Simulated assay, not measured.
Amino acid sequence: MSLNAVAPYVLTLVAGAMVAAQPAFNGQLSGHLGSPIRAALVSFTAGALIMLATVSVVAFRSGWPSPERIMNTPPHLFVIGGALGALFVTTAAWATPKIGTGSFFALLFAAQLIAAMAIDHFGLFGIEERSVTLMRLLGAGLLTLGAWLVVNH
């Protein structure tokens, strides 16, 4: 298997491990600032500054998108990802200190997998259709059972 074929899997595993720590840090920040919304604002501001620096370096090498390309982008695409990210970060900062990191991620993974399978099955949001199979349903059921065990035991 080539590096190009393996890289998405490896980077996804690394990102998943890093994301596991994010709610713990944001939960601590929420306690210090007295609000999960303030913690989310600080988190997004830091992320935006880091991304601004990263994009600036990349744009220096490869250029910025043309004004026409920007104008042809549906307006909701400029907002929805950030809005969903804000919901996630704020919820994580609020819920994790209350239910623990394990319970938070168990519930999150189960909900994500069920929603992702529906998105795939119905081809929502421009995603290519990928039918739900009995084995995929079994996998989702086992993950949901695992989430229940983590939360309740």
Results as ranks from 00 to 15, higher is better:
residue 46 A to L: 15
residue 66 S to Q: 03
residue 20 A to Q: 03
residue 19 V to G: 04
residue 31 G to A: 08
residue 72 N to F: 04
residue 139 G to N: 04
residue 48 A to M: 10
residue 59 A to R: 06
residue 125 F to P: 00
residue 133 T to N: 03
residue 30 S to V: 02
residue 66 S to C: 00
residue 58 V to S: 10
residue 97 P to E: 00
residue 151 V to R: 07
residue 152 N to H: 15
residue 16 G to N: 02
residue 52 L to S: 09
residue 7 A to N: 08
residue 147 A to Q: 08
residue 63 G to Q: 04
residue 107 L to Q: 06
residue 29 L to G: 03
residue 105 F to V: 04
residue 14 V to E: 11
residue 4 N to T: 12
residue 102 G to Y: 00
residue 58 V to N: 07
residue 25 F to P: 06
residue 97 P to A: 00
residue 149 L to G: 05
residue 27 G to S: 13
residue 94 W to A: 15
residue 4 N to P: 11
residue 109 F to N: 12
residue 19 V to F: 15
residue 79 V to K: 06
residue 126 G to T: 02
residue 14 V to N: 08
residue 32 H to K: 11
residue 49 L to F: 01
residue 68 E to S: 13
residue 124 L to T: 04
residue 27 G to M: 08
residue 96 T to Y: 01
residue 38 R to Y: 14
residue 131 S to G: 15
residue 15 A to D: 04
residue 141 G to M: 01
residue 26 N to V: 08
residue 146 G to D: 07
residue 74 P to T: 02
residue 51 M to R: 09
residue 57 V to Y: 11
residue 130 R to A: 15
residue 12 T to K: 07
residue 13 L to E: 04
residue 55 V to Y: 07
residue 9 Y to K: 10
residue 109 F to K: 02
residue 127 I to D: 03
residue 131 S to V: 10
residue 56 S to K: 08
residue 3 L to Q: 14
